[in-house]
Amino acid sequence: MLSDAARAEILAHRERYPEGRQKSAVMGALHIAQAELGWLSPEVFREVGELLSLAPVHVAAVATFYTMYEKEPAGQHVIDVCCNISCMLRGAYEILEHIEQRLGIKRGETTADGQITIREQECIGSCSTAPALQVNYRFHENLTIEKVDAILDQLLAGQPVASPEEVTHG
């Protein structure tokens, strides 16, 4: 169930679009729901549909089209390692394999404690600062094995990992 706060946020989000165009708010509503619940269940499709006067099947069709919407529970933290061409040229697969080894899981899997999911990702827009990854959709760039180890150490210790970009840009 969505909280009252999330429902209010979705209704406010709807106002960003012209009168009568509330269908446009479906993607934002799904982002809001996922931020609160971690993933999108059929129950959420019904609730979002109700708030935006849309059929739950339509909400489900949208949710399943896009990769960022989780259709089943993912780990508490998601590490997306870009392995597309620019990152591959700069050693992305070595980075991904190193993470797999350290966590003892393969790409697409989640650690047994439900803490960390790792995925091979397509281009995330860090090609000139490759190799790169995102932790919960926050950037980490110009990666080295040492930098990756530091990120994993923090995650495994339950500490927050700040995106260097967001720290240095002030």
Binding site: I85, S86, C123, G125, S126, C127, H169
Partner: peptide, 14 residues
């Protein structure tokens, strides 16, 4: 901006 290799619009907007 999802074309592999492209990352400058991100610099502009952020």
């Amino acid at each position: 901006e999802s074309e592999p290799g492209t990352c400058h619009d991100r610099q502009l907007v952020s």
